[in-house]
C-alpha cells in the first residue's frame, strides 16, 4: 500500500474551511440556546407541571431521544413541504437540532432542578435571603454545578452534530469539505484536516466551558 499524503492542494483551502467552521459554530450556539429554552420549560413542566403537562414533557423527551436527529431533520426538510411548510436548509437543520437538543436538555436540567433540596431553601430563608438572592446564591450555583458536565458534553455532541447540515446543502465546515473533495479528490487529506479542525474547535469549547463553570459556578469539568 503506497500512498503519500499531499496536503499541498488542500492547505490553501484552510481559510475557506475555517469560515465554514464559523457557520458550524453559529448553528451549534443557536441550536443550543433554543434547546436550553425548551429544556428549561420542559424541566419545569416535568417537575411542577401537574399530571398532563408533566406527561406531555415526558412524551416529548421520549420521542426525541429515541429517534435519530438525522431523520428528524429529514422529516422537517422533506416531509413538511407536503403540508405546506417549506424551510431553507439552514433553518430546517437549526429547527431539527433545536427540537432534538430540547429533549436531551430537558432531562439534564430536570436532574439539576431535582437535586435542589428543600433544606437548602429553608436554610437560605433562615439566613434572611430574598427570593432573588436565594436564586442567585443558592439555586442557580447548585443547579449549574450538577448540570455543567452534562451540558458541556451535550454542547460538544451538538457541535459534532452540525456536520449533518452538509447533507442538506448547508455550506458549513463539513459541507465545504465535501465541496473541496469533489474538486480536488484529495479525500484523505481533506477529511483528516477537517477532522482536525473539529478536534480543535471542540477542545476550545470544552476549555471555555470548563473555565466558565469553574469561575462562575465553581463546577469542575474535565477538559480531557
Amino acid at each position: 500500500m503506497h500512498y503519500t499524503l499531499h496536503f499541498g492542494q488542500v492547505t490553501p483551502e484552510i481559510p475557506y474551511l475555517l469560515w465554514g467552521a464559523l457557520i458550524s459554530l453559529e448553528l451549534s450556539v443557536m441550536a443550543f440556546a433554543g434547546g436550553m429554552v425548551i429544556g428549561m420549560v420542559g424541566a419545569i413542566m416535568r417537575l411542577r407541571g401537574g399530571r398532563w403537562l408533566s406527561r406531555l414533557a415526558r412524551w416529548y423527551v421520549t420521542f426525541f431521544t429515541n429517534t435519530p436527529q438525522l431523520v428528524q431533520i429529514y422529516f422537517i426538510f422533506f416531509a413538511l413541504p407536503e403540508v405546506g411548510i417549506l424551510l431553507d436548509p439552514f433553518p430546517a437543520v437549526l429547527l431539527g437540532m433545536t427540537l432534538n437538543a430540547g429533549g436531551y436538555l430537558t432531562e439534564i436540567l430536570r436532574a439539576g432542578l431535582a437535586s435542589v433540596h428543600q433544606q437548602e431553601l429553608d436554610a437560605a430563608e433562615t439566613l434572611g435571603m430574598s427570593h432573588l438572592q436565594t436564586l442567585r446564591y443558592v439555586i442557580l450555583p447548585h443547579i449549574f454545578k450538577v448540570v455543567m458536565p452534562a451540558m458541556t458534553n451535550q454542547y460538544i455532541l451538538m457541535t459534532l452534530g452540525t456536520s449533518m447540515a452538509a447533507i442538506f446543502g448547508v455550506e458549513e465546515l463539513t459541507g465545504r469539505a465535501f465541496n473541496i473533495n469533489s474538486t480536488t479528490f484529495r479525500s484523505i487529506e481533506i477529511f483528516l484536516l477537517t477532522g482536525g479542525i473539529y478536534v480543535l474547535v471542540t477542545l476550545a469549547a470544552t476549555s471555555l466551558l470548563a473555565l466558565v463553570g469553574r469561575y462562575a459556578f465553581r463546577a469542575r469539568v474535565r477538559i480531557l
Binding site: S163, T174, A177, S187, F191, T194, V199
Partner: peptide, 16 residues
C-alpha cells in the same frame, strides 16, 4: 471529537 460523518467519509473515500 470528530463528527461521525467525517470519520465515515474518511473511510469511504480513503478506501477508494
Amino acid at each position: 471529537r470528530v463528527p461521525f460523518l467525517i470519520t465515515l467519509m474518511l473511510f469511504f473515500f480513503g478506501a477508494q
